[in-house]
Design a protein around this nucleic acid. Structure first.
Length: 179
DNA sequence: GCCAACGTTGGC
DNA sequence: GCCAACGTTGGC
C-alpha cells in the first residue's frame, strides 16, 4: 500500500529545482534514528513525498516527489572525510540508511508552513506541530492530497517580488539533513 | 542572529 | 535510569 511522507531539506543543500533537473537523487545524510527507521523499514518504491524546504523564505512544500529506491545503507557515513561521515555503525553493520527520490512535480510557488498551519484538515500534520524537527515524517493520504491541491493552486511570485534574490551565504557546515 | 525545542551523550 | 550539559534544528 502506498504511503506518504514529508521530507525536509534546506535549500543550501538541495532544492526541488535541482531535483527537477536531476530527475532523481539519493537522500543521504540523515542522522536521526526515527527518520532512519522510516527510510530503512517503511518506505517503499512508489510512496509519495512532499518536498519541504526548511530554513527557507518562506519555508514550506515546494513540490512532489516519489520514492524510487527503498532503504539501503548510507555509504557517506563510513566515508572518511565526507561531510556526512559518522562513526556510528560500520560498513558491516550500517547505522544509517538512505532512499532514492524521484522528481514528480514542482509547484509554481510555495505552500508555506503558515498556510499549512491554517488549512483545515492539516491540524494534525506533524510539520505543523510546535517543535517538530523530524526531517522525515509520515503524512496521511488525505494530508498529501490537500497539500498537493494547495501546491497546484500556487502561483509564481509576481513581478514585484521578481527582483534578484539576495545573496545568502551558506550556513555553517554540519547543518544539513539530506545533504 | 536569536533562541526554544529537541535529541544525544555521559557522569553518576 | 536519571538528568544536566551540550549540540542541532529550524522558525522567526
Amino acid at each position: 500500500m502506498t504511503r506518504y511522507w514529508l521530507m525536509k531539506c534546506e535549500p543550501s543543500a538541495y532544492t526541488i529545482e535541482r531535483l527537477e533537473r536531476d530527475g532523481r537523487t539519493s537522500w543521504e545524510g540523515v542522522r536521526n534514528y526515527q527518520a532512519r527507521n522510516f527510510m530503512r523499514d517503511e518506505m517503499q518504491v512508489g510512496d509519495g513525498v512532499l518536498f519541504y524546504a526548511s530554513n527557507a523564505d518562506p519555508s514550506g512544500v515546494t513540490g512532489l516527489a516519489e520514492i524510487v529506491r527503498a532503504g539501503y545503507p548510507d555509504h557517506t557515513a563510513w566515508t572518511k572525510g565526507h561531510q556526512y561521515f559518522d562513526e556510528t555503525g560500520s560498513k558491516d553493520a550500517p547505522a544509517w540508511y538512505m532512499v532514492d527520490v524521484g522528481f514528480v512535480e514542482r509547484f509554481a510557488g510555495v505552500v508555506s508552513l503558515e498556510q499549512l498551519k491554517t488549512t483545515k484538515g492539516l491540524e494534525e500534520m506533524m510539520v505543523t506541530q510546535k517543535g517538530s524537527r523530524l526531517s522525515v515524517q509520515p503524512v496521511t493520504r488525505a494530508e498529501f492530497a490537500i497539500v498537493a491541491r494547495l501546491g497546484r493552486a500556487t502561483r509564481a511570485a509576481g513581478p514585484a517580488a521578481a527582483e534578484p534574490a539576495p545573496i545568502r551565504p551558506p550556513r555553517a557546515a554540519g547543518r544539513r539533513t539530506k545533504k
